[in-house]
Design a protein around this nucleic acid. Structure first.
Length: 867
RNA sequence: GCCCGGAUGGUGAAAUUGGUAGACACAAGGGACUUAAAAUCCCUCAGCCCAACGGCUAUGCGGGUUCGAUUCCCGCUCCGGGCACCA
């Protein structure tokens, strides 16, 4: 055995061995329990970043651990290959998106391979290949025929200078990121998936996911946002015609306090009122400025203008004025809201600003109402009662809503209604690098889904990207076609699909990537039975990706393709790897983001950053926030330098040791040295043992006290590591436990009995570490047990007989403060413990002669004496 | 703005069900080995007070429940994630 730890050499040898033996190949086998371990596939942005290393190391640890437990493990990998960055790169570097994407895939694949993950590469897929997206198009046509995909107007960010639709990310402070022009909202026809038809099931099934973090289930629940309220109407007469203004409220108990209504700028009443009212028309135009992102709309200044249109209060008949409000969204609910300034914060601010009436209709006894502030008294559903509300006075929340809803229903002006916050999923994108929407527009027959025998609609790959609209719309050879029904001249849809569509079902396709006859097959049923056993990915996907995947799984079930309703049985949401951001202002709100690796940070004596300079030119750069590593903020750290210098095992060990997986990790490479040192130490301990000759591992017999204690620690460690890997999924403490074990190991003597225990300990330690640092473990196990393959071993089992303990140490407290400790024989009864505790010197001293009022004995832990 | 998290030594963190706060590491300081350096090994290492024994304080801030709170409850502050076209 060589005496030096040489990671490059041993990692190459181990990977060669695994390749030769096809160790990671997953074959369906009904004689073993299956374990499908899935990590979120990467977007091929160019290089791996630390978040990838973290994600895939967690997946690999769980995969290898379950292999050692006897499971038939599938760990696949693929590429979320469609998306915007490829188009941006195309514009910047004049390279076609396909070429850029495939080159990135090739490079990142070599990086992944160098990390030694037990991935079955035979199942690799990329979503930008027709072999993949043809099935997505095929399912699209089925769903379209079922009415689960439909067309309606949707609002997008429009850049009036570049004449293109912008993603929310491309709108910065209300301006287009390239042109700098003020962005406008524009309504265009788009295809929508009817996710709201599944709202009830998506909500209810959250309770069937005990393997998901509570946090994620709660976020999804709130996102779906089921609420019961009242949909009702304000009747009005305009241009000689009677009509109704519909609104929805969860606060029907405050309906008597309505002093005005507000409608969206795009609402028909607003449009009508703007005729002959240039000021209002101008305001409506102003409302169209800015992006569509909810965060922007919710934080912007609330503005409004009266329409002059009066509607009738449905219960009192009083006239209520309709305003246009920039905070009311057309795409949400009815596009109109009632306003009760006395009991709603936003309505109150609006009423104060425009000097509108405020009418208190909820009161709490003993508290007075003031026009200086709004009162959330409804939250007090016990004591908040209707007041100034005529016949409803004195009614509490629920009774008031029931009475009011009944009266509205009697007048035919409203009813109770369940409403969801969840909106249908708009999947049309006016972009090139995506899966073409398989629709043909025929002037005679209308929108026709592309027939099966014409699928896939292949995305042409040699295009020029200009940034102004989709290249597909300028390619007659793409869009010119004939109607599948009447054969007449027709036009192919040039929009592509949201890339979330591809990522909503890729995990099913891993089971049968080679099937060119069907989307899924019986292998899908094998691997996905009961759901994917473990899914691992960033917490930032807690809502959108995970909700869409759940939705698609239900769609595919209802089309009869699969028989599961939930895709992921267990979910581990890893915390983000975050890093500081640095930038320079280029003016016009544009920023040049600079990678942390190119920056020198100056800190004060307390370690706080005071400034930063670009290494290349020595000039200052601005320190931004600490954010998730991303392409757009250029704050990703390339793990390659780490791998090159220390090897894959050190990189894997370090990132798993740095913090528990669900916690966010602020990147710093301080501490890498320590991980490397540990592996060197493990190597040396093994080398020194092997150099003295191998011995059979200790099996049973009597041991001196020191060795008995060590052996107890060994088997406690085995139990803890297995629990940390399997149940807790907390790898940093598993590593710490093995480190402690080896610290104790290093102090053991070298006699024959000790050496047999050392053999046992080293074999176990190396196997316990195998899931995290497989290369070095492979090499070391081969030395400890010549001819055996570490990857074929079962995980060590704790020996119960080694765990018994004769003496237990109890902590002694007086009034909850630690005052000493007490050693007692295992199994000592409570009374004896109490007596021994009271007799102890430390306790006597702090009782100061006062009698014990109470004695609390926590078995195996402590004694607390209250005086 | 709304929804979800987080905050513990100089640093990353541990404390699994309310029971020894700071395991395991990093950095730092001291020592051994060495001509020297690197590597390695050993020691110290939350703060304050004390010659020492020991004591007091301390888990973002302010309250509460409890014999006992990093852990549970209420109210804040700051930081991060998501907000439907970044993925």
């Amino acid at each position: 055995m060589q005496d030096k730890y040489t990671p490059a050499e041993i990692e190459r040898a181990a990977q060669d061995h695994w390749n030769k033996t096809a160790a990671a190949r997953a074959i369906e086998d009904t004689t073993k329990p299956k374990y499908y371990c899935l990590s979120m596939f990467p977007y091929p942005s160019g290089k791996l970043h630390m978040g990838h290393v973290r994600n895939y190391t967690i997946g690999d640890v769980l995969s290898r651990f379950h292999t050692m437990l006897g499971y038939n493990v599938l760990q696949p990998m693929g590429w979320d290959a469609f998306g915007m960055p490829a188009e941006n790169a195309a514009m910047q570097n004049n390279v076609p998106p396909a070429k850029w994407t495939y080159a990135n895939i090739e490079y990142m694949k070599t990086q992944l391979k160098s990390l030694g993950f037990a991935i079955d590469w035979e199942r690799e897929l990329a979503t930008c290949t027709p072999q993949y997206y043809r099935w997505e198009q095929w399912l699209f046509t089925r769903l379209y025929e079922k009415g689960l995909i439909y067309k309606k107007l949707g609002t997008v960010n429009w850049d009036p200078v570049d004449h293109t639709v912008l993603a929310n990310e491309q709108v910065i402070d209300g301006r287009g990121w390239r042109s700098g022009a003020l962005v406008e909202k524009r309504e265009i026809p788009m295809y929508y998936m009817k996710i709201t038809a599944y709202a009830e099931e998506l909500l209810a099934d959250l309770d069937k996911l005990p393997g998901w973090p509570e946090q994620v289930r709660l976020m999804q629940k709130n996102w779906i946002g089921k609420s019961t309220g009242v949909r009702f109407a304000f009747p009005y007469e305009l241009d000689g015609k009677e009509d109704k203004l519909w609104v929805f409220t969860t606060r029907a108990d405050t309906i008597m306090g309505v002093t005005f209504c507000a409608v969206a700028a795009e609402h028909p009443l607003a449009t009508r009122a703007a005729q002959g009212n240039p000021a209002l028309a101008a305001f409506i135009e102003e409302c169209k400025q800015g992006g569509v992102a909810e965060a922007d709309i919710a934080t912007m200044e609330k503005k409004g203008m009266p329409t002059g249109i009066l509607v009738q209060h449905p219960l009192t008949g009083e006239k209520v004025e309709v305003w246009v409000g920039n905070y009311v969204l057309m795409g949400y609910g009815e596009g109109a809201v009632m306003a009760v300034p006395a009991h709603d914060e936003r309505d109150f601010a609006f009423a104060k600003k425009y000097d509108l009436a405020i009418k208190q209709v909820i009161g709490v006894e003993g508290q007075s109402f003031s026009l200086d502030g709004w009162q959330e008294w409804y939250a007090d559903k016990q004591n908040g009662k209707c007041t100034n509300s005529g016949k409803y006075d004195g009614l509490a929340y629920e009774a008031a809503i029931d009475a009011i809803a009944a009266d509205l229903a009697a007048k035919g002006l409203g009813e109770k209604k369940v409403q969801f916050r969840l909106r249908d999923w708009g999947i049309s994108r006016q972009r090139y690098w995506g899966c073409p929407v398989p629709i043909i527009h025929c002037p005679t027959c209308g929108d026709m889904p592309v027939p099966d025998d014409q699928l896939p609609v292949v995305l042409p790959e040699n295009v020029e990207i200009t940034g102004a609209g989709s290249p597909l719309a300028k390619m007659p050879e793409f869009y010119e076609c004939s109607c599948p029904k009447c054969g007449g001249q027709a036009k192919r849809e040039t929009d592509t699909m949201d890339t979330f569509v591809e990522s909503s079902w890729y995990f099913l396709r891993y089971t049968c990537p080679d099937n060119d006859q069907a989307m899924v097959d019986q292998r899908t049923a094998y691997w996905c039975k009961g759901g994917i056993d473990q899914y691992i990915g960033g917490i930032e996907h807690a809502i959108l990706h995970l909700l869409y995947s759940r939705f698609w799984t239900k769609l595919m079930r209802d089309v009869g393709l699969i028989d599961i309703g939930e895709p992921f049985a267990n979910l581990l949401t890893q915390g983000m790897v975050v890093a500081p951001t640095f930038y320079r202002d280029l003016g016009d709100g544009k920023k040049q983001w600079i990678n942390p690796a190119e920056v020198d940070v100056v800190t004060d004596e307390r370690g706080r950053p005071t400034g930063a300079t670009l290494i290349a030119d020595g000039q200052p750069v601005i320190i931004g926030g600490t954010e998730k590593m991303s392409k757009s903020k250029n704050n990703g750290v390339d793990p390659q330098a780490l791998i090159d210098q220390y090897g894959a095992d050190t990189a894997r060990l370090f990132i798993m040791f740095a913090s528990p997986p669900d916690q966010s990790l602020e990147w710093s490479d301080a501490g890498v040295e320590g991980a490397f040192r540990f592996l060197k130490r493990l190597w040396k301990l093994t080398h020194d043992h092997v150099a003295q000759g191998l011995v059979p591992a200790f099996a049973d017999g009597e041991l001196p006290a020191a060795l008995k204690d060590f052996r107890r620690q060994l088997h406690q460690t085995i139990g803890k590591v297995a629990d940390d890997y399997g149940r807790r999924k907390q790898f940093n403490t598993a590593i710490a436990a093995v480190m402690e074990l080896l610290n104790a190991f290093a102090k053991l003597p070298d006699d024959a009995t000790a050496r047999s225990v050392k053999q046992e300990a080293l074999e176990a330690a190396v196997l316990m570490l195998f899931p995290i640092v497989p290369h070095v473990s492979h090499a070391l196990f081969g030395e400890l047990r010549p001819g055996l393959d570490a990857g074929q071993q079962t995980f060590p089992k704790a020996d119960a007989s080694a765990l018994t303990q004769d003496e237990i140490e109890l902590m002694l407290q007086v009034n909850g403060k630690l005052r000493g400790s007490l050693k007692v024989a295992a199994g000592t009864d409570k009374a004896s413990i109490e007596a021994a505790a009271l007799a102890s010197e430390a306790v006597q001293k702090f009782m100061e002669g006062k009698p014990a009022k109470k004695i609390v004995v926590v078995p195996g832990r402590l004694v607390n004496i209250v005086v």
